[in-house]
Simulated scan of single mutants.
Amino acid sequence: MRLDKYLKISRLIKRRTVANEACDAGRVLANGKPARASYEVKAGDVLEIHLGERVLKAEVLSVAEYAKKEQASDLYRLLEE
């Protein structure tokens, strides 16, 4: 699954266009390297999202095409900041 779509479905970023812009600006890292919106996300990847002063670090647990609001947080695990 594309990174921008994963960020939206997992609700780490609210909209896909915002996720796309964050990737283009280099504010999203996958396994320590800047990731493009087209990066293929797989279980085990560590994503780092720079949101202003805050850095969100999450490990991908699973990839799903759809996730309800209650299930979205089951797709990843937040790591220590």
Rank of each mutant, 00 (worst) to 15 (best):
R27Y: 00
K69R: 15
A22R: 08
V55Y: 14
I49W: 09
L51R: 15
R11H: 08
K5H: 09
G44A: 09
A19V: 03
D4M: 09
Y76P: 00
V63N: 12
L12D: 10
L47P: 03
N20G: 03
A30Y: 06
L61W: 01
R54L: 15
R77E: 13
R15F: 05
R15V: 07
D24R: 15
A72S: 10
K68V: 10
L7Q: 03
L79H: 01
N31L: 04
V60L: 12
L7E: 09
A37H: 12
D74A: 00
S10T: 04
P34M: 14
S38T: 13
K42P: 01
A22C: 04
A67Y: 06
G26P: 07
Q71F: 03
V55I: 15
Y76E: 00
S38Y: 01
R2L: 15
Y66G: 00
E48W: 12
M1L: 11
A58I: 13
N31H: 02
S62N: 12
C23T: 04
K57G: 00
Q71H: 03
A22Q: 07
S38E: 14
L78G: 00
L75H: 04
S10I: 08
D24N: 15
V28E: 12
Y66M: 08
M1D: 13
S73P: 00
D45V: 06
R16P: 00
E40P: 05
V46D: 06
L78H: 04
R36F: 02
C23F: 05
A19R: 07
L12V: 14
S73Y: 02
S38H: 01
G44S: 06
K42G: 05
E21M: 09
A22N: 05
R11S: 03
A43R: 02
E59Y: 08
K57E: 02
L79W: 03
L29R: 13
A43G: 08
K69F: 10
E48A: 02
A22D: 09
D74K: 05
K57I: 10
I9S: 05
L75V: 03
Y6P: 01
A30R: 05
A19G: 08
D45Q: 08
